[in-house]
Design a protein around this nucleic acid. Structure first.
Length: 162
DNA sequence: GCCAACGTTGGC
DNA sequence: GCCAACGTTGGC
């Protein structure tokens, strides 16, 4: 019998600051597909590196803004590859300690499937069934978190998506 | 702007 | 390896 120590999520929530890249900004990219630059947290990087698969569902979340919430449905659109901004001295995300022959930071492409209404934090919190959604837990700061299938299904329902 | 929570750094 | 200090996140 094979040992499966971790059950890999097929659904994710990814935070973006609308001042950096809003859902509308993402939709303006070719094929509504954006390179998810700027992740500088090892746990979030490892999700992209080790667990994400092309086609996985993504909840596009606006953070650090007036109305934080889920604003769109997207999908993982590439395998992981080095985040070019880590080597760009002009970038806010520049990491002078990362070497091109051993890139520290990775990204995946994310394709927006559709913009939705803003499913706000208070509305999410109003559903007891979403109590364990990582984004709703106290002190959560991770910019990429796995989403359980049951949570994905309920959120899809709340957004009137089949 | 405040501040709780968390991650990272670095001296020891 | 411990842990205090510091930096960042992100809701409010």
């Amino acid at each position: 019998m094979t040992s499966q120590h971790t059950q890999t999520s097929r659904y994710w929530l990814m935070k973006s600051e609308p001042g950096e890249c809003s859902i509308d900004d993402a939709l303006a990219f070719e094929n509504s597909t954006v390179p998810w630059v700027g992740v500088r947290n090892y746990q979030a990087r490892n999700f992209m590196r080790d667990a994400m698969q092309v086609g996985d569902g993504v909840l596009f979340y606006h953070s650090s803004c007036a109305e934080p919430g889920i604003v769109g449905i997207a999908r993982v659109a590439s395998t992981p590859y080095p985040d070019p901004t880590q080597f760009d001295p002009a970038s806010h995300y520049h990491d002078p300690t990362s070497r091109p022959d051993q890139p520290r930071w990775l990204l995946v492409d994310v394709q927006v499937i559709r913009k939705t209404r803003n499913l706000s934090l208070p509305e999410l919190r109003a559903h007891p069934a979403l109590e364990d959604l990582t984004i709703l837990k106290k002190g959560n700061r991770l910019s990429i978190t796995p989403v359980e299938a049951v949570h994905w299904q309920l959120i899809s329902k709340l957004l009137s998506i089949k």
